[in-house]
């Protein structure tokens, strides 16, 4: 089967999966205790008002009817309105989702930019104090919960370094980058960066640790191969052999891991966003659960699942580009 057939097959199975997700999300939200209307209007609400709003939101109809109505609207981009603010859910998601994706992408970039050189350094200085230190760091990095790392970064870095803010998000990176390119104003990008630094470090640490470990072991394996020895024997400098000959071949398993971890990053962002008051979709979900804002909870979880499965599909497909030996079936 060619790549088109494979993509088609995956898309169909993806649609079925998302349908299943929508059923689960819908059931979870609607089986949860507490009447949202009553919570919204408070204890003193008049019964007729409760009745009126319940009918308005369609909460009095049987669950299957409510589900079908919700899904029919959802596929047209209408996820309902927030009970709290009246804002369309799709608008809230559109505001918040880019912030979460931005955070996850920057975290991934940081993890790669720091993790790969650290792994190379550990491999070429095998069993030295540097190697031991980076492996120890990697062990702790995988084990420590990312929201706790966030808290520690807050107490150590944000309290002592004036220009690093503890909370909130600056301008969006994409817009800020645009402003830099078109108007030569780089201030917004710097502002975005200093806001992003701590949360993305917190979320990226565990993946950075995994990347460091994998780069090290993969590079060590390749460095022991014959062609590397041949290159060295021919008189090619050690640094050149390590980077140009060995690292190139050692990087593939690392890329595989990086891809698999992107979804994990989205999950990590959910909890860590609350630490840094990051206005992402994770905080939106957590806040809406606390406020029993049903439409927002189910809409944003569904949208996050859509992003999640699409990212995983893209990652799968990109392996074929990196490694031509992979065959789709």
């Amino acid at each position: 089967m060619g790549i088109t057939g494979y993509v088609l097959k995956r898309l169909i199975s993806l649609a079925i999966t998302l349908l299943g997700v929508s059923v689960i999300v819908f059931l979870l939200v609607h089986l949860s205790p507490g009447d949202p209307i009553r919570i919204m209007l408070g204890e003193q609400a008049r019964p007729e008002d409760v009745q009126r709003l319940t009918e308005l939101y369609g909460f009095d109809e049987p669950l299957p009817v409510q589900y079908v109505r919700w899904m029919a609207a959802a596929v047209q981009g209408d996820l309902g309105d927030s009970i709290r603010s009246g804002t369309p859910v799709i608008e809230l998601v559109a505001q918040r989702l880019p912030a979460t994706i931005e955070l996850a992408v920057v975290a991934l970039i940081l993890a790669v930019v720091i993790g790969i050189p650290l792994g190379v350094l550990a491999a070429v200085t095998r069993n030295s104090p540097i190697d031991l230190a980076s492996m120890g760091l990697a062990l702790v990095g995988v084990a420590a919960p990312n929201f706790w790392i966030g808290l520690i970064l807050l107490s150590t870095v944000a309290s002592n370094v004036g220009w690093i803010p503890a909370f909130g998000r600056g301008p969006g990176v994409v817009e800020a980058f645009g402003a830099g390119l078109t108007e030569f104003r780089w201030g917004p990008l710097l502002d975005a960066g200093r806001h992003l630094l701590l949360p993305s470090l917190a979320i990226g640490t565990s993946i950075m640790a995994i990347i460091t470990r994998m780069t090290r072991s993969s590079l060590l394996e390749v460095l022991g191969l014959d062609y590397v020895r041949t290159a060295r024997a021919k008189g090619v400098r050690r640094a050149v052999v390590t980077v140009r000959h060995a690292l190139r071949n050692a990087i593939l398993p690392v890329v595989t891991v990086v891809g698999l971890q992107f979804g994990f990053l989205l999950g990590g962002a959910i909890v860590t966003e609350t630490v840094f008051a990051w206005p992402g979709i994770g905080r939106l979900i957590v806040d809406s659960i606390a406020q029993r804002d049903f439409p927002v909870v189910q809409g944003s979880i569904l949208m996050l699942a859509v992003v999640f499965v699409f990212v995983n599909l893209l990652v799968d497909l990109s392996y074929g580009l990196i490694n031509p030996r992979i065959r789709y079936d």
């Binding site: 299943g20 997700v21 689960i24 999950g267 990590g268 959910i270 909890v271 659960i289 999640f308």
Partner: peptide, 22 residues
């Protein structure tokens, strides 16, 4: 297929949703 559906959400998100419901 059901397992795939459960895996289509980040783990912590699914856990949050379940706890919120229960």
């Amino acid at each position: 297929r059901i397992m795939d559906v459960l895996l289509a959400l980040p783990g912590i998100l699914l856990a949050i949703a379940i706890v919120a419901a229960l």
